[in-house]
Design a protein around this nucleic acid. Structure first.
Lengths: 135, 135
DNA sequence: ATCGCACCTGGAGCGCACTCCAGGTCAACG
DNA sequence: CGTTGACCTGGAGTGCGCTCCAGGTGCGAT
């Protein structure tokens, strides 16, 4: 197997058909092949590329930068250094993102702790041990 | 000290003055105090609340849900359970977010590795050992 | 007195990343 | 031969979260 209808591609990549068309239109996807009827035919390479796009997208890379990356990727071997630099910069942002999430998660955990405490202080007189018994 | 001008507040919280006004308008900030001239005067409590909002926002909680949380917070002690549940649910999403980022980061690292390899294969004839020597 | 400045208001505008729509084509199925 | 369904196009619309703007006010410094 090596070619996929738009529907299959949407299903496999998690992008909607509309998004696939949109990505092609703005140049993230460089001229997808067509069959006799003018319908898109995605290749295995397209799927691989889409999976890379998905990864970049979900880690928060803006479309403009993915576009830059796509252009480089089309540019052949001379652009490898620049692509490397771009990915490394992005990787650092992802790292930073994770660090921040963890820091903020601590704040959330602390708040959750406060709420837990305030709930356990509230029980003494009110409920005669209704719900929540053992762990 | 215990009261802050809009400008100070913006500086300390990282929200723009416009955003502070917007948050008050939509109800994330419940009637900020005013001085004689009608200008906002933020309290220490406001700053604490804003820091919580910032934390939720940056971990990806949509405004609609922060709104729900704000309403609960205004609702007094009876809403503690619900606030707890809300934060716990959010915490799980944050956890999931971190997991996904890490997974995707692996894909990025792998790609970076490919680029590194393809660069080191390119050197043999060209450069006579210019940059990058040890380590 | 008047200037500059930080702030006020209501409402319009923006950037991003899609998402939806109307109207049309083609292939296959009954 | 008619209908269905997946797909096509260009372009308009959407949702989110701000951000900007015009026009105005009050206060301290010159």
């Amino acid at each position: 197997m090596s070619s996929y209808s738009p529907g299959e591609t949407a299903e496999k990549t998690g992008f909607s058909i509309d998004t696939l068309r949109y990505y092609e239109k703005i140049g993230l996807l460089s001229e997808v092949a067509r069959n006799a009827a003018g319908r898109r035919v995605f290749s295995d390479d397209d799927l691989k590329w889409l999976s890379m796009l998905r990864c970049l997208r979900e880690t928060g890379m803006p479309i403009a930068e993915m576009l830059r990356y796509s252009e480089l990727a089309r540019g052949g071997g001379e652009t490898v250094e620049e692509r490397l630099a771009l990915l490394q910069a992005h990787d650092e942002r992802v790292e930073e993102q994770i660090r921040r999430l963890r820091t903020q998660q601590k704040q959330i955990h602390w708040k959750i702790g406060l709420y837990r405490d305030s709930l356990s202080e509230e029980t003494p007189a009110s409920v005669p041990a209704a719900a929540s018994a053992s762990a």
